[in-house]
Nucleic acid binder design. Structure first.
Lengths: 376, 376
DNA sequence: AGAGCTCTTGAAATCGTTTTCAACGACGAG
DNA sequence: CTCGTCGTTGAAAACGATTTCAAGAGCTCT
């Protein structure tokens, strides 16, 4: 007998109880050709002439034998992965995860799954994970608060990415309106000496938010006082950077009656610092946050904040990305950005300014950072 | 000419600038056989006799031509996916995402990626996502706060899953010690009328935590007063359920000087309710949380809480799972559970009980739920 | 020198699908 | 009746990697 290795196709492939069964076994079990079974299972148009009862029988037996198509074989041949990649700064961040939860449902419903990678704002990791994701054959990318330098090899949607990369669709909040809402609210209450917080330089919203703030202030004839601008630093996603920055502001003894925090987490840090300086929120200092995280309503005091529709932005990102993937001619490819709207949620961290506070200075306390004493 | 379809292997496969190149092109470009190239790229032992400079040349040219092995072909043949599945209740939950961030790094370092699915505590979704994940050929599963009814077809590690499914390794917190730390702290301060919160019935920690609480109380000869037990209800991952439950407790006019919340989010809700009843934290009611979420230190007051090492638990889960995957004979397969330790973080939400409060009753206020007024 | 080893090597088998394509049958028009 | 067209069908090509396996080379030992 000559060299012979190929499995004899005349042989009926054995069905073993534990081993997963493949389409060949399924077909021989059904007495049909592999092609017919494949066509029926995939609802291919070529299967429309096959009797309806055969269709039913195929599905029935497939279920009975617990046939699960091998995803690698399928993807290898069809060149589809039904997988997308998601880049975030931190998975543990409230912002990103709310967006994620918006993305998830739509994706799942459409038969896609996603990989998440978190780069902690480190450019080297961003580059590395781009490769990891591409080597996993993602069909599209959602980049949340992630600076992309160049166009990606697959359709890409960014959320709050303000980098204007050609061919990338950007889901953004209307920062102009958002800033106008927050500053308008404070202005209307009578605040004139308002402190503003700039986000970390690596956070993509920082610059646009700041520009929007300047514009909104200008529109109200409100002067932004240089000494009242505080800057967040570091990669820490906790209230720590805002706490530190606000302490520094308080130590400077500059008077202010309100502060517009970069986000709700930062607002928590700011409130902490203000309290430790023996000042009350909102009576002495009003605080406005940003995002409306899930605990914002339950904080003490309830946080007045600008709500970003994060879930909606995630959903919109997922929908847009699938359109880009599924139709290379979709007009969406030409869109630079899709804008969503913010709304102001007024709670109890803002009120009319304390008249005394506008003039007179209260010395800041010298208490230490929130202590994290531990006992085993 | 007879029927001929197979690409003539004598023909050099053309290298087109934009199309991805495959190993065949790479090999012909290098003047080597496909097998040799594959062996070199994979550091196969069979390649050790090939000259070192050939190795270098292969890697060099592979990089130069930007060769990326097709993951589907590779996985199809090698029957490995280097992918694991993660099931969580909610991606937007602080608890799960801290665990996730612990999982992520280790997994990435080992060349694995992961799919996340979130089931919102709905059994139907759990079942569906089990199928989704298996059809994606995951090599292992991490189930966070997820009830698994039966053994999974792949190695499985659960975090805070107390279901005792055969063959599943469980990463758990030492709830006994955790409860003893919290209750011991309150007891030591002098609290005797302590309210306890039971978690939602679908949360896997609820039962074990409760048992631990009863045991710890018993050990201290502390009576758990039935009317001071509150129960969380509903799927809402916000402070809302705890707020509602605590309001009900306050409305009952039962006296208590401390409350042990189910977790930090619940503690936020409880504090809110207590404040609205015109009581102070901690002077009138001490509050102890659980988890030590990132904002716990910055809340007002700083939250005394039992810290779960969530990142560490995630890391441990990832490490354990990879061991299970990589060695079917690893003794870890026999382990029922791996226990990690809690620590008490004392901040400012606890103090000695108010003597008046232990006897006399303060009428609860009738204010509404935290308002979420919106303006466009 | 020849037998018996081991080590290298690359052609081809293999993984499990989807889809192409040649063959064939049915049918309508001329 | 013949031809052309169209629709149906299943064998086999294709996807792109890894790995088997037989052949051949290189050795040692008698």
């Amino acid at each position: 007998m000559p060299r012979k290795r190929k499995t004899d196709s005349a042989l009926v492939p054995a069905i073993q109880p534990d081993k997963p069964i493949n389409i060949k076994m399924l077909a021989s079990h059904l007495g049909l050709s592999i092609a017919a079974v494949s066509r029926i299972l995939n609802h291919s148009p070529a299967a429309k002439s096959i009797p309806k009862e055969t269709h039913e029988r195929v599905f029935e037996v497939a279920k009975e034998l617990n046939y699960k198509p091998n995803i690698f074989a399928r993807s290898l041949r069809s060149r589809r992965s039904y997988t997308i990649g998601v880049m975030v700064a931190e998975v543990s961040e409230g912002y990103a995860t709310l967006v994620l939860s918006g993305i998830e449902k739509h994706l799942m419903d459409e038969g896609y799954v996603y990989f998440v990678v978190s780069h902690h704002h480190r450019p080297a990791l961003i580059a590395e994970y781009e490769n990891v994701l591409m080597s996993r054959a993602i069909e599209g990318l959602v980049a949340i608060d992630t600076p992309l330098k160049a166009r990606f090899p697959v359709p890409t949607v960014t959320i709050s990415g303000h980098d204007e990369v050609e061919g990338v669709v950007n889901i953004v909040l209307d920062q102009g309106r958002a800033a106008a809402l927050a500053i308008g609210h404070l202005h209307e209450l009578g605040h004139r000496r308002i402190a503003f917080m700039r986000g970390q330089s690596h956070t993509s919203d920082s610059t646009t938010r700041w520009n929007a703030i300047e514009e909104a202030a200008h529109a109200l004839d409100l002067e932004i006082l240089r000494p009242l601008i505080v800057q967040l630093n570091g990669n820490d996603p906790t209230p720590e950077p805002a706490y530190i920055a606000t302490r520094k502001l308080l130590d400077s003894k500059e008077l202010f009656t309100a502060i517009f925090a970069f986000n709700d987490i930062a607002a928590i840090g700011a409130i902490r610092a203000i309290r430790e300086a023996n000042l009350r929120v909102p009576e002495d200092v009003s605080v406005v946050g940003f995002d409306d995280i899930q605990t914002a309503a339950y904080l003490n005091p309830g946080l007045t904040t600008v709500r970003q529709p994060l879930k909606k932005m995630g959903l919109l990102a997922a929908q847009s990305l699938l359109r880009l993937i599924q139709s290379p001619t979709d007009p969406l490819h030409a869109a630079r950005q899709l804008m969503v709207d913010a709304e102001l949620v007024v709670r109890n961290s803002t009120c009319v300014p304390n008249p005394k506070r506008s003039l007179q200075h209260t010395p800041p306390s010298k208490s230490a950072t929130p202590h994290r004493t531990r006992r085993g």
